[in-house]
């Protein structure tokens, strides 16, 4: 079924900017007041590119994804300022109807929980076909035929009979494959994968990443990966953004950031990744954890470095003033007053 997902020749040059997020600030109304859960975030995504967002839970990674989809929690969340330019159209200003046209069609998303992300009372065939009927105006028969092809493309065996299965008849990995089939059904320009493998077995995780890579090569879809898994980042992405408390801590290519982290938080995240040794020895490199926790939402947006309380390099300046984003060589960006002190 080669023709399932068509090869897309990059319309412009390979470096064309597909999505440009400019100074995005997202506010959430909480009991403690209005807090910026995403605080002045900017980044670009190239056509067919890959970018990863990493950081601890509660750093605003998923909120970024939901903002791109126009799916911020209602009525608590709203885009306070900034632009989300998708093909030069500002999604931050787009109407609900326009966003519904884009969702599932130009930008789609897969989620962390494949076990609960599919509707238990409809067949998987119907759930795939539905999105095709919605955006591609296919009739029932055409949509079903296409759904079978898509199941085949995500390597579900005997797809023609499986389309009549219900989600509870599938394993977690298979359900995530179905989610991927739904997300890629309309050949979107951007696929947002919000911790797509966190809930799955390690062996299945690798299969899902392989599948995503394979499908990306076929379709040219850009992938935004949200994860805490540094191994996944190294495998899936060229670019990485490290987020902390709603702000960008560091941005660069994966090679730059992993080899030479320019922010103490990134440094800590990398040191906290366990390494498998080729042989088991008595000596193991010590695993370092980052002391403390992410600050509560009520502290988000304060004019200081929000990481200072957990940082060995923190000085009075860090507690007084929010660090600016400084660009080091080759667009390696960091927001830290003491980046030069890091070895």
């Amino acid at each position: 079924m080669q023709d399932t997902i068509h090869h897309i020749a990059p319309d412009n040059s390979a470096d064309a900017i597909l999505l440009s997020v400019r100074n995005l600030t997202v506010e959430l109304t909480t009991r403690d007041g209005v807090v910026p859960v995403i605080d002045n975030m900017s980044f670009d995504l190239k056509t067919g590119g890959n970018i990863s967002f990493v950081g601890e839970s509660g750093c605003g990674k998923s909120m970024t994804a939901l903002a791109l989809m126009g799916l911020l929690p209602q009525p608590a969340g709203r885009i306070a300022s900034g632009q989300i330019l998708f093909n030069n159209e500002d999604l931050a200003q787009a109407s609900d109807a326009r966003l519904r046209e884009i969702r599932g069609n130009d930008i789609s998303m897969i989620f962390q929980e494949p076990m609960t992300s599919l509707n238990p009372v409809y067949t998987i065939g119907e759930q795939i076909a539905e999105v095709l009927r919605r955006h591609r105006n296919l009739d029932r028969a055409e949509a079903t035929a296409k759904a079978i092809e898509l199941l085949d493309a995500v390597h579900i065996p005997s797809p023609a009979s499986r389309i009549n299965d219900y989600p509870h008849q599938l394993s977690g990995g298979q359900r995530q494959r179905v989610m991927i089939a739904i997300a890629l059904a309309c050949e979107p320009k951007i696929l947002i994968a919000d911790e797509p493998t966190t809930a799955l077995d390690v062996t299945v995780q690798a299969q899902i990443f392989d599948l995503l890579t394979e499908l990306q090569e076929k379709t040219g879809t850009a992938i935004v990966l949200i994860t805490h898994d540094m191994g996944a980042v190294a495998r899936m992405s060229q670019d990485i953004i490290v987020m902390y408390a709603g702000r960008k801590a560091e941005q660069g290519t994966v090679a730059q950031v992993i080899r030479q982290p320019a922010h103490p938080y990134t440094h800590g995240l990398i040191a906290a990744v366990p390494h498998l040794l080729p042989t088991i020895t008595e000596e193991r490199p010590e695993l370092l954890e980052i002391p403390g926790i992410v600050p509560p939402l009520s502290q988000f947006g304060q004019n200081r470095c929000l990481f200072a309380s957990r940082c060995n390099y923190a000085t009075e300046q860090c507690r007084q003033q929010r660090p600016e984003e400084i660009s080091r060589e080759n667009q390696h960006i960091t927001a830290c007053w003491h980046t030069d002190s890091l070895s």
């Binding site: 969702r103 992300s117 509707n119």
Partner: peptide
């Protein structure tokens, strides 16, 4: 509030399809 309703929204379905097709039957 469930995950599959979020999925339905991510598909770009209309509010009435979300409520009367995906949520009601459940």
């Amino acid at each position: 509030g469930s995950d599959y309703i979020r999925t339905a929204r991510a598909k770009g379905l209309s509010e009435s399809q979300i409520v009367f097709k995906h949520a009601l039957k459940n």
